[in-house]
Design a protein around this nucleic acid. Structure first.
Lengths: 172, 172
DNA sequence: CGCCATTGCTTGAAGCGTCAAGTGAATGAT
DNA sequence: ATCATTCACTTGACGCTTCAAGCAATGGCG
């Protein structure tokens, strides 16, 4: 513990931090609540289904899927087991590397995702996208990228440039 | 589920959302990890101790403390029980309303907080405050307030104005 | 005063995430 | 060829959070 000279937050810093910390606590809860109520999924499970649906063959290795969904491999393993029990995902041994496992989105899983997506997107819109104007949204994007870099300095982040391609149906 | 006409995210919206959602997933984990490693506390427990330390008499009713720490009363009850077992907090029945319980920060709890605070603030600085310039920090504050309002329209938020009072040692 | 709804908090069970240990396949060294 | 090591993932146990009751004190009302 840094005993030398703690640099306390100044008043403006503190104001920003308080608003920010309240938000990062409450927003995930609000998003989870909507998904749970409307689809019986949590955010992580949704990200898993969404990640698979975008992948070629709707198939992804567990490790890749874990990174994509921002979670640990262990967590993913438990979650995929649950999703598999519900029939949304199927696991198969990776041909070519017997250590690896491929997770495959089933037709039922795809339908589940398709029925959950609109409500989730609507929630994201109403809580985050719509309350902010486009300029703020871009400010937010930059801010988040800088914070992500501070957390994980090695990782260069995709789509750091100011431009972006055409609209897509993905909501990951 | 909103079947009428899902308004999908445009590309810039999607980019912002992806960065944002990655951040709100990873940042709490990073903050918790530091607190756990250095102090054996999680963020919520820290907020409880910090909230109490700022209150008059270092005492707060459970309900008020729950709001202050952004958590449910049930969660707070479990947490205070743990903190009480560790000697950081004491519970006493509220004189004047026998239903209410006051949580009181013990001297040991105060020392615990004092020893944990510098490391926590340093982490907040290094991950959020320092990577951003003052203008971005203010942008972030405004953005968070707008999102908080979108989540909880009734609640008017404190310190919504552009100005703020003098620096403080608080880090809640 | 006696009744009952409400308030404020606590509790126990169930679900989810993390951590540490374990399994089995691939790789590399000898 | 053999054995140790690494890799990719799985598993089980434990801890924390949530949810749904539960309990006691209080306030309102006739």
């Amino acid at each position: 513990m840094d005993r030398d000279e703690p640099r306390w937050l100044t008043a403006p810093e503190l104001e920003a931090w308080k608003a920010f910390s309240a938000m990062i606590i409450k927003l995930p809860a609000a998003l989870d609540a909507q998904l749970r109520a409307d689809a019986g999924l949590n955010q992580f499970e949704y990200l898993v289904l969404a990640g698979l649906s975008d992948a070629p063959e709707r198939t992804l290795r567990m490790s890749d899927l874990a990174v994509l969904a921002n979670g640990s491999l262990s967590r993913l393993s438990h979650v995929v087991k649950r999703l598999e029990a519900q029939g949304y995902v199927r696991r198969e041994r990776c041909p070519g590397d017997g250590r690896a496992t491929n997770a495959v989105l089933t037709e039922e899983g795809f339908r589940k995702l398709a029925s959950s997506a609109p409500g989730h997107v609507e929630q994201v819109r109403s809580l985050v996208v719509d309350p902010l104007d486009p300029e703020q949204l871009d400010q937010l994007r930059r801010i988040c990228l800088q914070v992500l870099q501070a957390m994980d300095p090695g990782l260069s982040w995709p789509a750091c440039g100011p431009e972006a391609a055409g609209a897509t149906e993905d909501v990951g």
